[in-house]
Simulated assay, not measured.
Amino acid sequence: MDLGWIIVMAVAAGAPPAAPPAALTCAVATPPGRPLAFTPPAGLTPRAVTVRGNLQLTGCVSPDGSASALRSGWVSLRATADASCTSAGRVRARASVIWFGWDGRPVGTSTISGGGGSLATHRPADSLLTGTVTYGPLKGRRASGGLTPGAGLVSCATQGLSRLSGTGTMTFG
C-alpha cells in the first residue's frame, strides 16, 4: 500500500480537518532605538515586573482575505507579570493597535487583552504577544506571537533584563 492511499484512507475515515488559516500574519519588531522597558529588571527568579513599550507590525498578509485592508500596525503595550529570564506567569497585558492600510493611512484601532496564563521558555516575552482582540478590526480573534530577543539568556541572568529589543511574527487567527 503506498503513502498516497494511506492519506486518502485517513481522510475518508474522518481524520480531523486542517486548522483554518490565520486571518492575519505580520512581522513584529521593537522600533529601532526603542526597546520594551522592564521595571524593575527581570532576573533569574520571578518577580513582579511592569513592561511598557511599542511594537511595529509590518508586511501583514491575510491568507483568507478577511483582513486584507490591514497592511501594518503600531502597537502600544503595557503588561504586568511575574517574570524571570526564563518564564512569565500571572501575565496581565493590554495593547492598542493602530492599523494602517496599503496607502499608509489609518484604517482602524484594535484593543488586545491578555493574561492569566504562564509561559516557561527561553523567550518569556512571547507571553506579552498573546491575547484576544476585544475591540476593533479582528475582534474576537486570538492574537499570538513570538519575539526573539537580541540579547541572550546569559546576559539576562548576569545583568538582568531592563530593555528588550527583538523581532518575530504575530498571528491573528
Score class of each variant (00 low, 15 high):
G117Q: 02
G73D: 05
R94P: 01
A19W: 05
A67W: 06
A93F: 01
G168S: 11
S165K: 03
G114S: 04
C60H: 06
A151G: 00
A27N: 13
R92V: 13
P35E: 08
W5N: 08
H122Q: 12
A18W: 00
T39Q: 05
A157I: 11
L57I: 07
I112N: 05
S87I: 04
L128T: 06
A88R: 04
P21G: 03
S62I: 11
S84F: 04
Q56D: 14
L161W: 05
L153Q: 15
L24S: 02
P21S: 03
A37Y: 03
G101C: 08
W99H: 07
S144G: 10
A69N: 14
I6G: 00
C156T: 08
A120N: 05
G89E: 05
S84C: 06
G104N: 14
V11A: 14
L36F: 10
G73V: 04
P46R: 09
F172V: 06
G140E: 09
S87Q: 13
G146C: 01
G14Q: 09
L55M: 06
T30L: 11
T25L: 09
G108Q: 12
G173Q: 12
V28I: 15
G166H: 08
A125L: 02
T130G: 00
G4S: 14
T45V: 13
A81E: 02
G4W: 11
R92I: 10
P46F: 03
S62A: 13
A81N: 03
I7E: 13
A88Y: 05
T130N: 09
L161D: 02
V133R: 06
S84H: 06
A143S: 14
V97P: 01
